[in-house]
């Protein structure tokens, strides 16, 4: 499964990066690279069935403690 993830990400990144590189938009390139690496890490974690903490739980806890539903 993770092989598919790696291939898809390489394809996506080259697709996006070449045009940004040719236009010399360095800032766009860096932001894109950061977002891409975050999503790549999450994709790998999902493909290895690792547990990723959900942001919904802390919000739920805070709201429940504040309003006592």
């Amino acid at each position: 499964m993770f092989v598919v993830v790696i291939i898809v990400y390489i394809a996506l990144l080259t697709l996006e990066f070449i045009s940004l590189y040719q236009k010399k938009y360095w800032k766009d390139l860096w932001v894109n690279l950061t977002l891409g690496s975050i999503s790549f890490i999450i994709a790998l974690m999902i493909s290895f069935h690792l547990y990723i903490p959900s942001p919904a739980d802390p919000i739920k806890k805070i709201v429940l403690s504040l309003f006592k539903i």
Binding site: L20, Y25, K27, D28, N32, L35, S39
Partner: peptide, 13 residues
């Protein structure tokens, strides 16, 4: 981040 265009980051977002 003062980017040139928002379109380049749509795929990753």
């Amino acid at each position: 981040f003062h980017l040139n265009d928002y379109r380049s980051i749509t795929i990753q977002t």
